[in-house]
């Protein structure tokens, strides 16, 4: 299928990507070409073939409810771009 510029912008917004006008144009063409190639999936008769993959069975396989693996605030914040106290800081969110 062919994407419109508006669709590209909508998707970019969902994905939180700021695109330049050039990128919008390029992605419009490239994504349309890829989707055209991918559209052959529609030809596959697949409606009734979905099988749930086998899962691990039983609650006993799950993790026990014990506290372990806390990293401490220093390690938690070590790679943060901006910190205030022991919190991650970001521009003020209004809502």
């Amino acid at each position: 299928m062919k994407l419109t510029e508006q669709q590209v912008l909508h998707v970019a917004k969902l994905a939180r990507l700021a695109l330049t006008p050039d990128e919008v144009a390029t992605f419009k063409n490239q994504l349309s070409a890829i989707l055209d190639a991918v559209d052959e999936l529609a030809r596959v008769d697949s409606a009734t073939t979905l099988v749930a993959p086998a899962g691990s069975e039983g609650l006993a396989l799950l993790r026990q409810d014990v506290v372990q693996g806390e990293v401490g605030t220093e390690a938690a914040l070590a790679n943060a771009p901006q910190v205030a106290g022991t919190s991650f800081a970001i521009p003020k969110v209004l809502e």
Partner: peptide
């Protein structure tokens, strides 16, 4: 990476 994020999001 942007291309694939866009494709997957769509």
């Amino acid at each position: 990476v942007k291309r694939r994020i866009m494709l997957g999001t769509f």
